[in-house]
Design a protein around this nucleic acid. Structure first.
Lengths: 143, 143
DNA sequence: TCTTGCTCCTGTAGCGCCTACAGCTTGCAA
DNA sequence: TTGCAAGCTGTAGGCGCTACAGGAGCAAGA
């Protein structure tokens, strides 16, 4: 049984963030000491580390919670975990593609300025330029 | 002079978003009709489109506002715009690199499951696996 | 003229994922 | 005993939207 500070150190999840996860139901609250302090057992520290690893891999908290549920269910449902992972992998690849297109568009936009022209074609294009084909109008681009 | 609905249509920025931009000082509010309705001139619609293009390219609202300031200043400071753009380009490239490493780590994590083993090594690794070298501990990974 | 239906208005609250602070109590060592 | 670190709760802020409630204005048709 360790304190929240020690749990934070061992899991790599900050103290405030641990309390936030508890408050929002991502993890269940641990036992409390008589004085009301949180006391974490090894398994609970494992869970925190699990969440952190999921977050490091870009999973949302909802996905992390879902994977945690799969991982701690009686019958180990590998297929379920695989499909969560696969969906996530596709979303990562989509983001990479979007960012690469963004990068290309930005490079294109900034290129003419390097020629040392008088006007800044970058700002001109942003202000009045033609409609580019980027971004496609029908896709969400909150990256 | 057009209504907010028409300005939204012409600029590609939603009505609620236009009001949000005005409320948060990204753009200045337009004239009002006697009944208190917003009335946009062509230049104001241009500004909205400028903001949208910046956002499409991944600039933050603060950066967009800054670029707008540069674009509408008397002496056209192309160098300033270039440096904002260059910094942004580097951050896009950093994000791409991070995502690619994330992708590789995820593929690595999910690979062994495909072999049809009894245990799900993906979940096992997330739960108890060794510390991977990804992510590096000293970098922000909120992507 | 009246009604219908669209557009517009303000204000507020919610999302996801934290981060930070105020103001308090507890625990431990010197 | 004193002093400080570490814990506690509750609340607010940041980013960039999005969505609603509850009202007012406006143009076109019956």
């Amino acid at each position: 049984m360790v304190t929240i500070g020690e749990a934070a150190r061992r899991s790599g999840v900050g103290i405030e963030l641990i309390r936030y996860y508890e408050r929002t139901g991502v993890v269940t609250g641990p036992e409390r000491s008589q004085a009301g302090r949180r006391q974490y057992c090894a398994a609970e520290v494992h869970v925190l580390r699990f969440i952190r690893r999921c977050r490091d891999l870009g999973f949302s908290l909802a996905e992390a919670k879902s994977l945690l549920g799969i991982a701690s269910s009686e019958q180990l449902a590998c297929g379920d975990a695989q499909s969560v992972g696969q969906r996530h992998l596709e979303s990562i690849r989509q983001k990479i593609t979007d960012l690469q297109q963004m990068e290309a568009a930005l490079v294109q936009l900034m290129l003419p300025c390097k020629a040392g022209q008088q006007d800044c074609s970058m700002l001109d294009t942003l202000l009045e330029g033609p409609e580019s084909d980027w971004p496609p109008q029908d896709r969400c681009l909150n990256i």
